[in-house]
Design a protein around this nucleic acid. Structure first.
Length: 973
RNA sequence: GCGGGUGUGGUGAAAUUGGUAGACACGCUAGACUUAGGAUCUAGUGCUUCACGGCUUGUGGGUUCGAGUCCCUCCACCCGCACCA
């Protein structure tokens, strides 16, 4: 009766599914624990070994929490709307729902094999109408809300309308694009269309003409977080700026709360910092500069209002609205030329070209708001139109870029810092005192800032202001496979579909491409294809991928509710996600949007917490190890003209050179023999005279890692792999093997380095895979996948199994008292495992199991009590084998999942009983580490023993001992 | 440039509050057994030295009786942000 993992795992997998062993109850006397994984997008490639890493960790923790007496919610679902299924649909015409369903089944099969304790009754799929009904409903709530700054929360738009009717908008403090002020009378006289247009400026989701990131290759707009370095994150296609009428989310209303909320959650510093950067808060002042001529004012934003007297010039972005108006006739041509040149540069070029200082004087002057001095107005592309007001006050003394600009164009630099030399560069420290600054003279930066703002506000020339880098998020996509909007248009005005009519399901279309005139695919759907159709037409855009994932953690609490997206009661019970595990690549996408929606839903009273994920751990990426073969072409030196036929023959018959030989420099010399043979072959075949043959390195090619074992290529398998390799010829090592080169890269289908968990589960079992993925190293660290050590982990499970069996392989454990040694091992392990789990150090957990099993094996321990506790301890890591042993130990099947986690008994714990000198109050003492709960007489005995032992450091001997209750013994010398 | 992180044997890595650095595993070496295996068991394995010993946590310094751990300097790599006013 060897450890037959296949039989065991099949048996328990089935049992757990049939008995719904991991079903979560919605109320309980036990404390609750909500452990969540980032749900996957079910791609066609299936799971690779990197996916389950986080799932295994969270599953271990969820199982641990069950054993610790928690009522655990541990669900799983699918983020099933998305681009790949749609692109597959465009290519093949197959409906994305079919592809998705197929992929989903494959994912489920793979997940099931690994033995996760998910409550599958709560599964959600963002692409199912039952689910996206509520995504649409939340969209409606956002549409019907505005951000009330006075109350610092979202409020009903109906309340805003009441205010407008009675007071106009002058008293309203809101986050809005509305700039015009109107009175109650004016409001009431506006037409419906005019009123709606104004309300749109307040809604939390709104329709507006805005500059968007348009990706022609994908045929859709993208949000800022979907773009990296000027190209789309998915596919790397070029993205351009385009003015389009799009739905947006007013996430900027939540900027400050999204920032402050970070203080209350237990996330990694790196993710928090990324979000802080993304939000990009700057505190400072907005200052108005009057023009020398005309009535216009230039508004600038500065974080250093204290340096206001150091202003030597202003710089406007080339696109700034006032540029054309203020430019003098003399400068007109030069300015226009500069604008044109700046316009031609793409965003990318502009960023890459930061070292070149460019700019152009407009000829115009502004007046310094305090001194009234004339200040030159320049334009320069280092000022960005999209940030702040698109204009800066240049203080060369205090800002390096301004300094560089001033030096480059020979503009005078005024020093405003006392005793600081600015001849070699700007002084950017925020220390020291100001000079040449009128009423700010002698003040520190901090004080001067306050006073400057105070004076500006008093004089009405500026005001304290905070700006954010965060932009509102574009919410529409010109795609098919996403949530339809619950929106229709009548006379070109948007209206919402009634709640009772939700969901608006995706209509069938005959093709998934945009229409000929560039409309989204949904524009292809005729009236009958829609399940709901109102007004003149429906909204043709669909929602972006992050819509469904912004609230899915709430749906798991109440997945079947047909009346609400989640009942208040259940949301109150399950509350925040206690532990969220997933990748860090969602830092400025999903994780920000989910926080935004949670805050909104909390504002509206639907839930009572405003941060979704209390603690988060980001598992590191598992990288693949790619293998390569090296292709060489033989090139002839022929007498006379090169024969095309010969050339193409040689090209289609390359040689594949083993890596170790490829590395050699004198490769040609080494293969003279081979080349001689080839030469003869050629001459015979083509009846030509070949003078010489040479080898030329041609390409390094990825080879499927399943054909490579320990860097050795399965040569026959390689020939059969792809047709082009059928007649491959090799140059092998002396021992007749072909060695592949290797490199660590991201796992990807195109690199043929994807390792699926299936084959490992087949070969070693799910329990081994689970332990091994944890054993690999710290969860949060990126690491290359490597199966070298998997045998060691598998052996541990086999040893574990053998602890319960006698030499004849029969199950055999002994009843009765356990001996002290075994108990010591057990309790040491309990303590360590509990500590490991509490600090999410799953890798040391596996190590500690190995130590325990090794020790008990050495002790020949087969005591039932000890082994029972051990089974409970190991079960989160290796649930199948533990369930099997648990039942054999006489327990009810399935009860292991809710057994009691063994309690650590310090009686059996022996700490080190060595000592070392410690300096304390100037006297040399010795510190002796002893068990924490050792009785006093035993302490004295231990100290005596320690005195005589050789373990003292430096040969020093203690003279006096002090017993510190509970913990440490100090010995005075 | 700014921010975050990492640096320990041949390899993956342990070391929870400053206290025997390298646990555990892989790999390697030698041996045992054998139905000859990707099996099992035993011993060894940081570097250096015949040995006693000496050296050792990226570099250099500091604090301390004692530093992988705390402080400062520098170096290397990874991630994020970036003419953000």
């Amino acid at each position: 009766m060897e450890y037959n993992f296949k039989e065991i795992e099949n048996k328990w997998r089935q049992f757990w599914a049939e008995n719904k062993t991991f079903k979560a109850e919605d109320s309980s006397d036990k404390p609750k624990f909500y452990g969540l994984d980032m749900f996957p997008y079910p791609s066609g490639a299936g799971l690779h070994v990197g996916h389950p890493l986080g799932y295994i960790a969270s599953d271990i923790y969820a199982r641990f929490k069950r054993l610790k007496g928690f009522n655990v919610l541990h669900p799983m679902g699918y983020d099933s709307f998305g681009l790949p299924a749609e692109q597959y649909a465009i290519q093949t015409g197959q409906h994305p729902a079919i592809t998705t369903e197929k992929n989903l089944a494959r994912y489920r099969e793979q997940l099931d094999k690994i033995g996760f304790s998910f409550d599958w009754d709560r599964e959600v799929q963002t692409s199912s109408p039952e689910y996206y009904k509520w995504t649409q409903w939340i969209f409606k709530q956002l549409y019907n809300s505005w951000y009330n700054v006075a109350a610092d929360k979202a409020d009903d738009i109906a309340n805003l309308e009441v205010i407008f009717e009675n007071e106009g908008n002058n008293t309203v403090k809101a986050v809005t694009d509305q700039v015009e002020v109107f009175t109650a009378e004016e409001w009431n006289s506006f037409s419906e269309a005019e009123q709606q247009k104004i309300l749109m400026n307040y809604r939390l989701t709104y329709l507006a003409d805005s500059m968007v990131n348009w990706c022609p290759a994908l045929g859709t707009v993208l949000a800022n977080d979907e773009i990296k370095d000027g190209v789309s994150e998915r596919g790397g296609h070029l993205v351009e700026q385009k003015l389009m009428r799009q739905w947006s989310m007013r996430i900027t209303a939540y900027a400050e709360r999204l920032l402050n909320g970070l203080e209350t959650i237990d996330w990694s510093d790196s993710i928090k910092e990324q979000q802080r950067n993304w939000i990009g808060k700057s505190v400072g002042a907005s200052v108005f500069f009057k023009l020398e001529k005309g009535e216009d004012k230039i508004e600038v934003f500065t974080t250093r209002p204290d340096t206001i007297f150091g202003v030597n010039f202003l710089v406007l972005a080339p696109e700034h609205a006032l540029v054309n108006k203020i430019t003098t006739a003399v400068q007109k041509e030069a300015v226009a030329a500069y604008q044109k040149q700046a316009n031609l540069k793409t965003e990318r070029d502009r960023q890459a070209d930061v070292k070149n200082i460019t700019g152009q004087f407009t000829g115009a002057y502004a007046l310094h708001p305090f001194s009234g001095e004339k200040v030159q107005i320049w334009i320069g592309d280092y000022v960005l139109a999209g940030y702040g007001t698109g204009a800066v006050m240049a203080v060369p003394a205090g800002d390096q870029r301004d300094w560089d600009f001033a030096k480059h164009f020979n503009i005078e630099i005024k020093n405003i810092f006392e005793g600081v030399d600015i001849s070699e560069g700007a002084y950017t420290e925020k220390e020291g005192k100001l000079t040449n600054s009128d009423f700010l003279n002698g003040l520190t930066v901090k004080k001067a800032m306050k006073l400057a703002i105070y004076e500006m506000e008093k004089k009405g020339i500026g005001t304290g202001k905070t700006t954010y880098r965060l932009r509102d998020a574009v919410f529409s996509r010109q795609r098919y496979w996403g949530e339809p909007f619950p929106v229709y248009y009548k006379n070109d005005l948007p209206y919402l579909i009634e709640d009772e009519q939700l969901p608006v399901t995706l209509p069938e279309v005959d093709a998934y491409l945009p229409t000929e005139d560039g409309e989204p695919p949904l524009a292809r759907a005729n009236k009958e294809a829609w399940n709901v159709f109102e007004g003149d037409r429906m909204e043709y855009n669909t929602m972006p991928g992050w819509a469904g994932s912004s609230w899915y953690f709430l749906r798991y609490m109440d997945p079947k509710n047909e009346a609400e997206f989640v009942s208040k009661e259940k949301a109150d019970y399950w509350n925040q996600v206690d532990l969220y595990i997933g990748g860090s690549e969602h830092a400025t996408g999903h994780l920000l949007y989910a926080r935004f929606w949670t805050k909104f839903l909390c504002d509206k009273g639907f839930i009572s917490f405003d941060e979704p994920f209390k603690k988060m751990i980001n598992q590191g990426m598992i990288l693949g190890r790619s293998s390569f073969v090296y292709r060489y072409t033989i090139l002839p030196v022929i007498d006379g003209n090169i024969n095309e036929e010969v050339l193409s023959f040689l090209k289609s018959n390359p040689l594949y050179v083993s890596f170790d030989i490829h590395k050699l420099k004198n490769i040609k010399e080494k293969f003279n023999d081979v080349l001689k043979v080839k030469k003869k072959e050629l001459e015979d075949t083509f009846n030509i005279k070949v003078l010489e043959l040479s080898l030329e390195f041609n390409a390094r090619l990825h080879v499927d890692i399943s054909l490579v074992d320990n860097d050795k290529l399965d040569v026959e398998g390689f020939k059969n792999w792809l047709p082009e390799y059928a007649n491959a010829e090799f140059i092998l090592e002396d021992d007749g093997t072909y060695i592949c080169g290797s490199e660590v890269e991201k796992m990807s289908k195109s690199k043929y380095n994807v390792q699926t968990p299936d084959e490992l589960v087949e070969k070693f079992g799910a329990d081994t895979l689970r332990c091994y993925e944890m054993f690999l190293g710290p969860l949060e660290q990126a690491k290359p996948w490597d199966t070298k050590g998997i045998n060691g982990v598998h052996n541990f499970l086999r040893k574990f199994w053998r602890l319960f069996h006698n030499d004849a392989n029969e199950f055999s454990v002994s009843e009765g008292e356990a001996d002290k040694k075994a108990l010591k091992t057990l309790h040491k392990t309990i303590k360590k495992i509990e500590d490991d789990l509490n600090r999410f150090s799953f890798n040391t957990g596996v190590s500690n199991f190995m130590i325990a099993v090794n020790e008990l094996t050495d002790q020949k321990c087969n005591n039932k009590a000890v082994l029972s506790d051990l089974v409970v301890l190991i079960s989160p890591y290796a649930p199948h084998i533990c369930e099997e042993l648990w039942v054999k130990l006489g327990n009810e099947a399935g009860s292991l999942s809710y057994a009691e986690f063994p309690t650590f008994n310090p009686d059996f714990l022996v700490e080190a009983n060595y000592a070392y000198p410690v300096s304390f109050n100037g006297k040399m003492r010795f510190k002796l580490e002893l068990p924490t709960n050792m009785p006093k007489d035993e302490v004295e005995k231990a100290v005596l023993e320690a005195e005589q032992s050789q373990k003292w450091l430096d040969g020093k001997t203690p003279k006096k001992l002090i017993v510190v209750p509970g913990k440490i013994v100090n010995v005075v010398v």
